[in-house]
Structure formats: C-alpha cells, structure tokens
Design a protein around this nucleic acid. Structure first.
Lengths: 193, 193
DNA sequence: GCATGTGGCTAATCGCCATAGCTTTATGGC
DNA sequence: GCCATAAAGCTATGGCGATTAGCCACATGC
C-alpha cells in the first residue's frame, strides 16, 4: 500500500474542489478523502477536524482573493481602482459561488484565529489602498472601507442566494451600486476640510 | 400519555427559540422536540424534514421582520423613512443575531417556495415604499431597492460575523453608510429628468 | 358506546464525524 | 546495507443526528 503523500495544503486543495462541485452541504470528510485517494480517518493526520479544515479553506480563499483583487486594482487610482475592486470581487464570487458561503459564516478560527485574521487583513488592506486616493481622513477611511465591504458582500450574497427575484438586469444594478459608492465617497471627500 | 397538541406553527415557534439560544449549529430536531415536550420523530407529523422546518422558520422571520420594519417606517418619508428602515433592520438583527443566518443562506423552499418568495416580497415591498418618495423612475427604483438591501444585509452580516475587526465605532460606520445611501439616492433622483 | 383518523411513541437504519490501536512505509544513523 | 523510529495510512468502533416503519392511544363524530 503506497503512500498518498498528503499535506494540509493538499487536503485543503481537495476540499476546495469538493466545495466548488458539491456546495457547502456536500463538503464532507468522506468526499475529501475519496478525492485524495485515502480513507476518511487518514485526513486527521493532516487536519484536526472538519471545522479546522474549513478554517484552512477560508484562509486560502481569502489569500487567493486578496491576490486576485490586488493585481486587478494595481496601477489604478480613484474611481477606476474602486470600480476594479468591486468588479473583481464580484467576479471571484461568480467564478466560485460556493466559496462565498465560507466567508459569510466565518468558522471560528480556534488555534488559527490569528492566521485567519491576517488573511482577512490582506483583503482589507487592499480595500484601504483603493480608498486612500479619495482623500478621506481618520475614521472616515475606516467607515469607507466598511461601506465598500458591506455593499459588495451584501450584493454578492443576495445575488448568489437568489435574493434578487425581479427580472431587472443584475449587472445594471451592480453598476448603479458602484456609481452610488464612487459618487458618495467623492462627495464625502470633497466635504472634508 | 396526554397529547402535546402541536401544530406546524407551534413547532416553528419552538425551533426559533432553539435557534435564538443555540445558534444554527444547535438547531437540531432533538432540541426542538425536547422544548416541545415530545420525542424527536413526532415532529415529522407536523414538519416534513429539518430543511422544511428551516423554510417555515425563514417565512416566519421574514414576515415578522416585515411587520416590524413596516411599522417603523410608517408615517415617515424620504430620508427619514430610509433611515428608519435601515436602523430597524439592523435592530432586528441585533436582537436576534442567529436568525440572520437563516436569511443569508436561504434554504431551498421546495414545496413552499411560493410562500417563501411571498414573505420575502413583503419585505421588499416595504423597501420599495420607502424609496418611492425619492422620485426615481423605472429600473432605477429596482436598483435603489437592491442597493439598500445589499448595504444593510452586508453590513449586518459583517457585523454579526465578526468581519469588522478594527476598534472604530460600528454605530458611526453605520451612520456613514446611511448617509452615503440617502445622499446618493437624493442626488440620483435630482439627476433624473 | 364505537369507529376512525391522527398524534405520539419505540425500534431500527443510515450517514457522518471522530477516536483507538495496529501496520507499514520512509528515512537517518551506523 | 541494516535497524530504529516517527509519521502516514488502515480497519474497527462509538456516538449522534436525521429519517423511516410500524404500533398504540387519544379524541372526535355518530
């Protein structure tokens, strides 16, 4: 019986594939083990529990999303950067719809809370960078980042969760939301002494 | 052995109490049955499955929230109405933090999809009513409602899910978001021919 | 008083997480 | 090359929760 040569990273990768294909409800240790070519209990040599695996997955997703958003806003400033940020976030969620569920209901990180927070922090840092150009100061900067995250996470959550039932075009609604945000931040910045 | 006299409505009520106290992970048929003073399998006489129960709960939550938001915006117009709507939504979520999880990940309604959509529709109708006063036309009205829902759902989701880690005051961020929304809609309406 | 339908119960199955303890592989020192 | 050891995998097992099957008692209409 040859060895499979698993590592926590590889297990996390297989788990992400299972999540992408079978959704949150289909994310089971048995399914992950099967994909890894191993019996279910063997996974415990690499991962502490199913919840722990979820944390590893969330860290990976956050890091991957941060990389992607980072490159997509790179070289842009002001409204262009913010638009790119929002579009890239929505694009990532559209490509991997099930991953969003893992970000919405954050598994308690336990031992890995610091790592999890750091990964989330990467993403938040990018949001800060895109907003910095507006000239907001102090707490307004934080408020703006929170507003951006709320809007985009909320829109994506409702879009993926079939919360938007009317036939009106979703892209147009997203554009409306984007305009609302860019215009609002610009105006707020203009009113800042 | 006397009868417990359960109905689907009563079971749903007990289930909501369990959810409020134990969270989504603690929502188990056994826990609901215990609270109802009955053995677990007896619940199947009133509810088709755990998922079905979740649908009933979601319908109840949506209806209850719609009632609450409806009365809180009643008699108000324009910015006042919108502010009241947003605050009431956040207030409901703060009072029953775990219920939000049921709205974020909508259980597929199955048989009761129509009922579920109708309950969601009540809430959306109230959002429409609060926005109508801004003088937006056609699709912009839908976009505005979607923007409102995205913002408030996103903010509440991040707030409850510990997505906002910085020490900056959350009430102030919510006020910032509210201002952004009211100002944005007013401006958009002013630009409408 | 009795027939009937319905609410509730116990027993049993199934799937999944998790633990225990054994076996085998790979690797490092000699 | 040979053995000791730690790590990786396996099978067996326990336990819990959802769900189904089949039985029995209560309550209502006659």
């Amino acid at each position: 019986m040859p060895r499979a040569g698993l590592t926590p990273q590889l297990v996390t990768g297989h788990a992400l594939e299972v999540l992408d294909e079978a959704g949150p409800a289909g994310l089971t240790l048995k399914a992950v083990a099967e994909r890894a070519g191993v019996a279910a209990p063997s996974l415990y040599k690499h991962v502490r529990s199913l919840d722990d695996l979820r944390v590893l997955m969330a860290i990976r997703i956050l890091t991957e999303a941060a990389d992607r958003l980072g490159t997509s806003v790179m070289g842009l400033a002001g409204d262009d950067a913010l638009r790119a940020f929002l579009a890239a976030f929505r694009g990532y969620a559209a490509q991997y719809p099930h991953r969003h569920s893992l970000l919405e209901s954050p598994p308690q990180g336990g031992d890995r809370q610091a790592e999890l927070d750091a990964a989330a922090g990467q993403l938040v840092e990018i949001a800060f960078a895109t907003v910095r150009g507006y000239g907001l100061r102090g707490d307004d900067l934080v408020h703006a980042v929170r507003a951006i995250r709320a809007m985009v996470a909320g829109f994506v959550g409702l879009e993926l969760g079939a919360g938007y039932l009317l036939p009106t075009d979703l892209d147009a609604s997203f554009a409306f939301l984007t305009d609302l945000l860019t215009a609002g931040l610009a105006q707020r910045a203009a009113a800042t002494p």
